[in-house]
Measured scan of single mutants.
Amino acid sequence: EVTIKANLIFANGSTQTAEFKGTFEKATSEAYAYADTLKKDNGEYTVDVADKGYTLNIKFAG
């Protein structure tokens, strides 16, 4: 089991951190699915992958 950390960075400057656990593939998939649910209210997003994929910096356009 691994932990994927998602740093969520919103257009208004606020930030939030979420963690997803499971296999690497499952946790990564859940992180992207979570970002997709936030897209409606926060706009499109870009992802900067860090720490060999264990950290995702997800920035929303607003």
Rank of each mutant, 00 (worst) to 15 (best):
E1T: 07
V2G: 04
T3F: 08
T3K: 08
K5R: 13
K5L: 15
A6R: 00
L8T: 03
L8A: 04
A11W: 09
N12A: 06
N12G: 08
S14P: 09
S14D: 08
T15V: 11
Q16H: 15
T17I: 13
T17D: 07
A18L: 14
A18E: 09
E19L: 14
E19R: 09
E19Y: 14
F20A: 01
F20R: 01
K21H: 15
K21M: 13
G22N: 05
T23M: 09
T23H: 09
F24I: 09
F24P: 05
E25W: 06
K26T: 15
K26R: 05
T28S: 10
T28I: 12
S29K: 09
S29M: 14
S29P: 02
S29T: 12
E30K: 07
E30Q: 12
E30A: 14
E30T: 12
A31M: 05
Y32W: 10
Y32M: 12
Y34R: 04
A35Q: 00
A35N: 01
A35L: 12
D36C: 06
D36Y: 05
T37G: 10
T37C: 05
L38W: 12
L38A: 04
K39P: 01
K39S: 06
K40H: 14
K40D: 07
K40L: 12
D41K: 14
D41Y: 09
D41W: 15
N42V: 05
G43E: 04
E44C: 06
E44Q: 10
E44W: 08
Y45N: 01
Y45D: 00
Y45Q: 01
Y45W: 12
T46C: 06
V47C: 04
V47S: 06
V47G: 02
D48T: 12
D48K: 08
V49Y: 11
D51Y: 03
D51T: 03
K52R: 10
Y54R: 06
Y54T: 06
T55W: 05
T55V: 14
L56Y: 04
L56P: 00
L56G: 00
N57E: 07
N57Q: 09
I58E: 00
I58G: 00
K59M: 08
F60C: 00
F60M: 01
A61E: 07
A61P: 11
A61D: 07
G62I: 07
G62E: 07
G62M: 09
G62H: 11
